[in-house]
């Protein structure tokens, strides 16, 4: 049920990313809702299936960005795997830590995804990075803000989407060491 709900949310976010986000922010920073849903999956699913979700989300990203095949899938699945390890190690549960995690995830994905797809620019890549990095930072902050709003909204809702934390062993940093 939880996976189905997350897939549904992912589909809604994909449609919103394509059709609504460009209209809402024609010139400014655009949140990456696909990465945001992947981050929320990381917070709520809390098992290794999140790597598969990252793989799927990466493929979706490269489909609609006309990127080099495989770059999005590889990048997002690796980043999600790292984020998952970090989450387990530091037992991230607070809204602030999740906000920071989402912001880092979105920033790394946005900037590295563009770098990977513009490698042919060669020497000009450094010049492009000076323009790219502030844009990526703005996009990632927008992504993290939208994610934070959704986290708060879901927290206020009567049903529980988050993983049960009744079993403390699941959050023990020693568990995966």
């Amino acid at each position: 049920m939880k996976l189905f709900s997350l897939m549904l949310l992912g589909y809604v976010c994909l449609i919103a990313q394509i059709s609504v986000v460009p209209d809402l922010s024609p010139e400014g920073f655009r949140p990456n809702l696909i990465v945001m849903v992947t981050g929320l999956t990381l917070f709520w699913l809390r098992d290794s299936r999140v790597i598969l979700c990252g793989l799927l989300a990466g493929m979706v990203c490269e489909t609609f960005d006309s990127a080099i095949p495989g770059t999005g899938a590889m990048l997002l699945s690796m980043l999600i795997w790292l984020a998952w390890r970090v989450q387990i190690h530091f037992q991230l549960r607070s809204l602030f830590s999740r906000f920071v995690m989402l912001a880092f995830l979105a920033f790394l994905f946005d900037s590295l995804f563009h770098v990977l797809n513009r490698l042919e620019a060669g020497a000009n890549l450094i010049a492009e990075l000076t323009l790219l990095l502030p844009q990526s930072a703005g996009n990632s902050l927008a992504t993290a803000t939208v994610g934070l709003i959704l986290l708060i909204v879901f927290k206020l809702m009567p049903f529980q989407l988050q993983a049960s934390t009744s079993n403390p062993a699941r959050y023990s940093p020693q568990y995966y060491q």
Binding site: S48, I51, A73, S77, M78, W81
Partner: peptide, 17 residues
């Protein structure tokens, strides 16, 4: 299983490329 999934993701990305 985690390592298997990571390898699978890398394999899929490599195949796509």
């Amino acid at each position: 299983s985690e390592i298997k999934l990571v390898l699978l993701a890398l394999l899929v990305a490599g195949s796509l490329y």
